[in-house]
Protein backbone atom coordinates (compact mmCIF):
# COMPACT_ATOMS: atom_id res chain seq x y z
CA UNK A 1 0.00 0.00 0.00
CA UNK A 2 1.17 3.47 -0.77
CA UNK A 3 1.62 6.42 1.52
CA UNK A 4 -1.70 8.11 0.82
CA UNK A 5 -3.78 4.90 0.85
CA UNK A 6 -2.48 4.19 4.31
CA UNK A 7 -2.35 7.69 5.74
CA UNK A 8 -5.77 9.08 4.75
CA UNK A 9 -7.93 6.43 6.52
CA UNK A 10 -5.63 6.62 9.54
CA UNK A 11 -5.78 10.40 9.88
CA UNK A 12 -9.54 10.37 9.36
CA UNK A 13 -9.81 7.85 12.18
CA UNK A 14 -7.79 10.36 14.23
CA UNK A 15 -10.15 13.15 13.20
CA UNK A 16 -13.15 11.12 14.40
CA UNK A 17 -11.41 10.65 17.76
CA UNK A 18 -10.68 14.39 17.94
CA UNK A 19 -14.34 15.20 17.27
CA UNK A 20 -15.42 12.55 19.76
CA UNK A 21 -13.65 14.48 22.55
CA UNK A 22 -14.83 17.88 21.35
CA UNK A 23 -18.55 17.04 21.11
CA UNK A 24 -18.47 16.36 24.85
CA UNK A 25 -15.86 18.88 26.00
CA UNK A 26 -17.21 21.96 24.21
CA UNK A 27 -20.79 21.88 25.60
CA UNK A 28 -19.46 20.84 29.01
CA UNK A 29 -16.98 23.76 28.96
CA UNK A 30 -19.76 26.22 28.16
CA UNK A 31 -21.90 24.79 30.99
CA UNK A 32 -18.99 25.01 33.45
CA UNK A 33 -18.25 28.56 32.27
CA UNK A 34 -21.83 29.65 32.92
CA UNK A 35 -21.73 28.08 36.39
CA UNK A 36 -18.34 29.62 37.27
CA UNK A 37 -19.14 33.02 35.80
CA UNK A 38 -22.47 33.17 37.64
CA UNK A 39 -20.89 31.98 40.89
CA UNK A 40 -18.27 34.72 40.72
CA UNK A 41 -20.90 37.45 40.37
CA UNK A 42 -23.89 36.03 42.28
CA UNK A 43 -22.29 33.67 44.79
CA UNK A 44 -21.68 34.43 48.46
CA UNK A 45 -18.14 35.07 49.69
CA UNK A 46 -16.93 31.43 50.04
CA UNK A 47 -18.46 30.37 46.71
CA UNK A 48 -16.86 33.38 45.00
CA UNK A 49 -13.49 32.55 46.54
CA UNK A 50 -13.67 28.92 45.44
CA UNK A 51 -14.78 29.78 41.89
CA UNK A 52 -12.04 32.43 41.60
CA UNK A 53 -9.34 30.04 42.83
CA UNK A 54 -10.56 27.43 40.36
CA UNK A 55 -10.40 29.85 37.43
CA UNK A 56 -6.99 31.25 38.44
CA UNK A 57 -5.58 27.72 38.66
CA UNK A 58 -6.84 26.31 35.39
CA UNK A 59 -6.24 29.51 33.43
CA UNK A 60 -2.76 29.69 34.90
CA UNK A 61 -1.69 26.10 34.24
CA UNK A 62 -0.58 25.44 30.67
CA UNK A 63 -2.98 22.86 29.20
CA UNK A 64 -0.15 20.31 28.81
CA UNK A 65 0.58 20.56 32.51
CA UNK A 66 -3.12 19.99 33.34
CA UNK A 67 -3.13 16.94 31.06
CA UNK A 68 -0.03 15.50 32.73
CA UNK A 69 -1.42 16.25 36.20
CA UNK A 70 -4.71 14.50 35.52
CA UNK A 71 -3.10 11.51 33.86
CA UNK A 72 0.08 10.91 35.87
CA UNK A 73 -0.50 13.08 38.95
CA UNK A 74 -3.87 11.56 39.84
CA UNK A 75 -2.41 8.10 39.27
CA UNK A 76 -0.12 8.82 42.27
CA UNK A 77 -3.31 9.12 44.31
CA UNK A 78 -4.70 5.89 42.92
CA UNK A 79 -7.08 7.55 40.44
CA UNK A 80 -6.57 6.15 36.96
CA UNK A 81 -8.21 8.00 34.06
CA UNK A 82 -8.20 6.72 30.49
CA UNK A 83 -6.60 8.97 27.84
CA UNK A 84 -10.08 9.86 26.57
CA UNK A 85 -11.33 10.81 30.04
CA UNK A 86 -8.14 12.77 30.76
CA UNK A 87 -8.36 14.76 27.54
CA UNK A 88 -12.06 15.54 27.93
CA UNK A 89 -11.71 16.55 31.58
CA UNK A 90 -8.61 18.70 30.95
CA UNK A 91 -10.30 20.56 28.07
CA UNK A 92 -13.40 21.19 30.20
CA UNK A 93 -11.40 22.48 33.19
CA UNK A 94 -9.19 24.71 31.05
CA UNK A 95 -11.81 25.81 28.50
CA UNK A 96 -14.48 26.35 31.14
CA UNK A 97 -12.15 28.60 33.13
CA UNK A 98 -11.20 30.75 30.14
CA UNK A 99 -14.81 30.98 28.94
CA UNK A 100 -16.08 31.87 32.41
CA UNK A 101 -14.29 35.22 32.16
CA UNK A 102 -16.45 36.18 29.17
CA UNK A 103 -19.60 35.05 30.99
CA UNK A 104 -18.60 37.01 34.09
CA UNK A 105 -17.87 40.13 32.04
CA UNK A 106 -21.16 39.79 30.19
CA UNK A 107 -23.18 39.37 33.40
CA UNK A 108 -21.55 42.44 34.90
CA UNK A 109 -22.19 44.47 31.76
CA UNK A 110 -25.95 44.09 32.12
CA UNK A 111 -27.67 47.11 33.54
CA UNK A 112 -28.33 46.95 37.28
CA UNK A 113 -31.90 48.15 36.56
CA UNK A 114 -32.68 44.74 35.02
CA UNK A 115 -31.74 43.05 38.26
CA UNK A 116 -33.70 45.53 40.37
CA UNK A 117 -36.76 45.20 38.13
CA UNK A 118 -36.65 41.39 38.39
CA UNK A 119 -36.44 41.54 42.17
CA UNK A 120 -39.25 44.11 42.28
CA UNK A 121 -41.42 41.63 40.33
CA UNK A 122 -40.92 39.15 43.16
CA UNK A 123 -38.31 36.90 41.52
CA UNK A 124 -35.74 35.18 43.69
CA UNK A 125 -32.05 35.84 43.01
CA UNK A 126 -31.85 32.47 41.24
CA UNK A 127 -34.92 33.13 39.05
CA UNK A 128 -33.53 36.54 38.18
CA UNK A 129 -30.24 34.96 37.07
CA UNK A 130 -31.88 32.19 35.01
CA UNK A 131 -34.71 34.11 33.35
CA UNK A 132 -33.47 37.69 33.10
CA UNK A 133 -29.69 37.98 33.30
CA UNK A 134 -28.29 34.84 31.63
CA UNK A 135 -30.39 34.94 28.43
CA UNK A 136 -28.96 38.39 27.77
CA UNK A 137 -25.48 37.75 29.14
CA UNK A 138 -24.92 34.56 27.13
CA UNK A 139 -25.76 36.41 23.93
CA UNK A 140 -23.24 39.10 24.84
CA UNK A 141 -20.60 36.53 25.78
CA UNK A 142 -21.05 34.53 22.60
CA UNK A 143 -18.30 36.16 20.48
CA UNK A 144 -15.78 35.51 23.27
CA UNK A 145 -17.06 31.96 23.79
CA UNK A 146 -16.75 31.32 20.04
CA UNK A 147 -13.09 32.32 20.17
CA UNK A 148 -12.45 29.96 23.05
CA UNK A 149 -14.27 27.12 21.26
CA UNK A 150 -11.96 27.63 18.29
CA UNK A 151 -8.95 27.61 20.63
CA UNK A 152 -10.21 24.35 22.11
CA UNK A 153 -10.39 22.74 18.65
CA UNK A 154 -6.74 23.62 18.06
CA UNK A 155 -5.52 22.72 21.53
CA UNK A 156 -7.25 19.33 21.27
CA UNK A 157 -4.06 18.31 19.40
CA UNK A 158 -2.32 18.22 22.80
CA UNK A 159 -4.30 15.11 23.83
CA UNK A 160 -1.49 13.13 22.21
CA UNK A 161 0.69 13.75 25.29
CA UNK A 162 -1.43 11.29 27.29
CA UNK A 163 -1.59 8.83 24.41
CA UNK A 164 -5.02 9.67 23.01
CA UNK A 165 -5.14 8.68 19.32
CA UNK A 166 -6.28 11.92 17.76
CA UNK A 167 -5.16 13.58 14.50
CA UNK A 168 -1.73 14.65 15.63
CA UNK A 169 -0.95 11.47 17.58
CA UNK A 170 -1.59 9.18 14.60
CA UNK A 171 0.45 11.49 12.34
CA UNK A 172 3.38 11.55 14.72
CA UNK A 173 3.48 7.75 14.78
CA UNK A 174 2.96 7.56 11.03
CA UNK A 175 6.09 9.56 10.12
CA UNK A 176 8.22 6.93 11.80
CA UNK A 177 7.00 4.53 9.10
CA UNK A 178 6.94 6.84 6.08
CA UNK A 179 9.24 9.79 6.64
CA UNK A 180 7.19 12.38 4.75
CA UNK A 181 6.76 15.05 7.43
CA UNK A 182 5.86 17.87 5.06
CA UNK A 183 2.89 16.01 3.57
CA UNK A 184 1.75 14.50 6.86
CA UNK A 185 1.73 17.71 8.86
CA UNK A 186 0.27 19.77 6.01
CA UNK A 187 -2.66 17.33 5.98
CA UNK A 188 -2.98 17.87 9.74
CA UNK A 189 -2.88 21.63 9.28
CA UNK A 190 -5.54 21.37 6.57
CA UNK A 191 -7.81 19.31 8.83
CA UNK A 192 -7.49 21.77 11.71
CA UNK A 193 -7.97 24.76 9.39
CA UNK A 194 -11.12 23.10 8.02
CA UNK A 195 -12.45 22.51 11.53
CA UNK A 196 -11.60 25.98 12.85
CA UNK A 197 -12.90 27.75 9.74
CA UNK A 198 -16.14 25.73 9.77
CA UNK A 199 -16.58 26.41 13.49
CA UNK A 200 -15.98 30.13 12.96
CA UNK A 201 -18.69 30.31 10.29
CA UNK A 202 -21.07 28.07 12.25
CA UNK A 203 -20.69 30.12 15.42
CA UNK A 204 -21.15 33.39 13.56
CA UNK A 205 -24.38 31.98 12.09
CA UNK A 206 -25.46 30.98 15.61
CA UNK A 207 -24.72 34.48 16.90
CA UNK A 208 -26.83 35.91 14.09
CA UNK A 209 -29.66 33.46 14.76
CA UNK A 210 -29.76 34.23 18.49
CA UNK A 211 -29.45 37.97 17.99
CA UNK A 212 -32.30 40.11 19.32
CA UNK A 213 -32.53 43.31 17.26
CA UNK A 214 -32.02 46.34 19.48
CA UNK A 215 -30.81 44.29 22.47
CA UNK A 216 -27.23 45.49 22.13
CA UNK A 217 -28.35 49.08 22.54
CA UNK A 218 -30.72 48.43 25.43
CA UNK A 219 -28.18 46.62 27.61
CA UNK A 220 -25.27 48.91 26.99
Amino acid sequence: MGFWEEFIPLVLHGAVNTLWVLVISIPASVALAIALGSARVYGNAPIKAIATAFVVTFRGFPLVVTLFLLFFGLADLGIYLTPYQTATLAFVLCGGSYMSEYVRGAIRSIDIGQSLAARALGMTKFQELIYIILPQAIRRALPGLSNEIIYQIKYSSLAFVVGYEEIFAVSKTFISRYFMPLQVFMVDAALYLAMTTAAAYGLRALEYKLRIPGLEMSIR
Binding site: S171, F185, A189, L193
Partner: peptide, 9 residues
Amino acid sequence: TPLVVLLFL
Protein backbone atom coordinates in the same frame (compact mmCIF):
# COMPACT_ATOMS: atom_id res chain seq x y z
CA THR B 1 -3.28 25.59 12.98
CA PRO B 2 -2.34 24.12 16.38
CA LEU B 3 1.10 25.08 17.69
CA VAL B 4 2.24 21.48 18.05
CA VAL B 5 1.44 20.79 14.38
CA LEU B 6 3.35 23.94 13.36
CA LEU B 7 6.35 22.93 15.48
CA PHE B 8 6.53 19.48 13.85
CA LEU B 9 5.77 20.83 10.38
